[in-house]
């Protein structure tokens, strides 16, 4: 846990500095004033509901009667009595393993490449790449593009070009569904992490590049590796957490593209499973257990990524 805070550099303060710092912050009043407004809201509207949901995961709760305690039943049911959960788990892991690393690398790559240009072009390119996230739920437009009959934009284009002769059922044929959802998720992956990278590159210390050039850095890739990336450690961690929390939570995109439930549950995910039990079947206890399980998976992945990042940046 301690490592969580140690991910960023600039830690090499001398013992004397530390001593001084402690003195300066000795008065707790400013600290409390700084923390209080957020902390109060955080505890009431974030921590309490999460604790309550974790509590509900050990109960049977149909949202009408009071919850009754069932111990670990919900967790046992997931693995031994719910085949669809196992499919959802498998699909979630596939989505996370594919869209997570690719989305993360792409959002840094684009932020870095955009930074190579002048201010105006940079602003325009940032807008273009962030547009899918900014546009909110515009991803429904992909359903017209991937529509399975010959009215679909992609099918009609491919037929016109003579690449295929019959329309492909992009969103209902299990062979293609996964790929279609992955394309749309990646299209939307320039999100919070991407903008944090853009802002981080913007606040880079320029004099470091000059020093690096004098030290013999000869091209932009070496500069990226030896100068930019180590300086960007705090933003890289932020982007990683954002990527984890979106790539493990694929669901709404799959729902609007391939329908719910999708053919043979081919693009069913844990988030959709939670929504299914939470708002359709009124089994909140079980839905909460699935949510807690998903949360635990993400936290473990975060711990691994955080350890790796902090080891690499120091």
């Amino acid at each position: 846990m301690k490592k969580a805070a140690a991910a960023a550099p600039n830690r090499a303060a001398s013992p004397l500095m530390k001593q001084k710092q402690k003195e300066a912050w000795r008065s707790r009043i400013p600290t409390m004033v700084f923390l209080a407004p957020f902390t109060i809201l955080f505890v009431i509207f974030t921590v309490l509901p999460i604790v309550a949901a974790i509590g509900l995961s050990f109960t049977y709760f149909n949202m009408l009667e009071t919850p009754s305690f069932v111990g670990l039943d919900n967790y046992i049911r997931m693995f031994f009595d719910d085949d669809v959960f196992l499919i959802a788990l498998k699909n979630t892991l596939i989505f996370a393993l594919v869209t997570g690393p690719i989305g993360y690398i792409l959002s840094f790559l684009f932020a870095w490449l955009i930074n190579e240009f002048g201010r105006k072009l940079r602003a325009l390119l940032t807008l273009i790449f962030y547009m899918p996230t900014l546009a909110g739920n515009v991803y429904f437009v992909w359903t017209y593009i991937f529509s399975g009959d010959s009215y679909g934009l992609l099918n009609s284009t491919l037929i016109k070009l003579g690449i295929i002769s019959d329309p492909i059922m992009w969103t209902t044929d299990t062979k293609y569904m996964m790929g279609v959802v992955i394309v749309v998720v990646l299209w939307m992956s320039m999100g919070a992490g991407f903008l944090a990278f853009v802002a981080g590159l913007q606040s880079m210390d320029r004099s470091l590049y000059e020093a690096a050039a004098i030290d013999g850095i000869r091209n932009r890739f070496a500069e990226l590796w030896y100068v930019t990336l180590p300086q960007m450690a705090p933003q890289l961690l932020f982007g990683a957490v954002m990527t984890i929390s979106t790539s493990f939570a694929v669901g709404v995109q799959s729902q609007s593209l391939t329908g719910f439930p999708s053919t043979d549950y081919a693009t069913h995910t844990l988030v959709l499973h939670i929504m299914d039990f939470g708002s359709i079947r009124f089994e909140m206890g079980y839905a909460s257990a699935v949510a807690v399980f998903l949360f635990a998976m993400m936290v473990i992945v975060y711990q691994v990524v955080n350890k790796a990042l902090s080891k690499w940046s120091t």
Partner: peptide, 20 residues
């Protein structure tokens, strides 16, 4: 405190609606 702040991002809001 900070590690709580970070991991709270990862909890899915679908099941916190009723307590909220």
């Amino acid at each position: 405190y900070y590690s709580f702040v970070i991991i709270a991002i990862m909890f899915r809001p679908e099941v916190t609606q009723i307590p909220l």
